[in-house]
């Protein structure tokens, strides 16, 4: 479903990602883990077609990506920017108008689950509620690929919990693949099927979480402590 083939990304000669090969199939929640600056966000933006590889190829469902891959990809940015003149309801409506696969009833359900006031102005939304709104907008799409860049970072435990619960509740695992970047693995460890560990722009591990526990008696955190010394 998602395929990266020998992908290298350089910024001004500085390597952000080096010769990455990656294949992801549907029906999975995959964590992309690693310290800040290791290339997690870069990977997500590349798959979303929002930046372009210096070398190599990226396809989603066989299509070479550019920003128009948004028809098959729902991307949640780590940035907190929205159109300030809209309120929550209008933002949802705007998204619904832009993506044919946007399911408005589902959006309404998630919004209610997240306890977001549809009339709240975006300008006045707390950081936690903006984080929740992002989840609504990202998960309401019936789309094969969901990319989430640090959906939990900087949020308090209550919000994080509601976001994790929202993820479990509203992902359509039969038809979707979800790729989440995070540097706080503990929170989402139990909802991951697989994780990909990335370090200095290179993939240093790609494991099935349950298999790792069965075969090596290790959780992701333990594996990472061993691998990132």
């Amino acid at each position: 479903m998602i395929e990266l083939n020998q992908v290298t990304k350089k910024y001004m000669g500085k390597v952000a990602l080096r010769d990455v090969d990656l294949q992801l199939t549907k029906g999975k929640i995959v964590g992309l883990v690693g310290p800040n600056g290791s290339g997690k966000s870069t990977t997500l933006k590349l798959i979303a077609g929002l930046i372009h590889p210096t070398k190599g190829h990226i396809t989603v469902n066989g299509v070479e990506v550019d920003h128009r891959i948004a028809s098959q990809v729902s991307y949640l940015s780590e940035l907190d920017e929205y159109y300030g003149f809209y309120n929550v309801g209008q933002t949802i409506d705007f998204y619904a108008s832009q993506f044919p696969d946007f399911n408005k009833e589902k959006a309404e359900e998630i919004r209610a689950f997240m306890k977001l006031d549809p009339n709240a102005k975006l300008k006045h939304l707390s950081k936690g509620n903006r984080g929740r709104l992002k989840i609504v907008l990202t998960l309401a799409r019936e789309v094969p690929v969901i990319l989430m860049d640090e959906p939990l970072s900087g949020l308090d435990p209550m919000v994080r919990d509601s976001i994790v619960k929202g993820l479990i509740s509203y992902i359509d695992l039969e038809n979707q693949v979800v790729l989440i970047t995070t540097h706080e693995i503990k929170e989402i460890e139990f909802i991951l099927d697989e994780f990909i560990a990335i370090k200095d722009g290179e993939i240093i591990g790609h494991h099935n979480v349950e298999q790792l526990r069965t075969e090596q008696n290790m959780s992701i955190v333990e594996w990472m402590t061993n691998s990132y010394q």
Binding site: K45, A48, L50, H67, R68, I69, A70, S71, Y75, S77, L79, E81, Y82, Y83, Q98, F99, P100
Partner: peptide, 14 residues
């Protein structure tokens, strides 16, 4: 310019 990821994340052409 500050919302490029928002503006460009759209299936329609440039």
């Amino acid at each position: 310019k500050r919302k490029m990821h928002l503006w460009l994340h759209n299936p329609i052409s440039g």
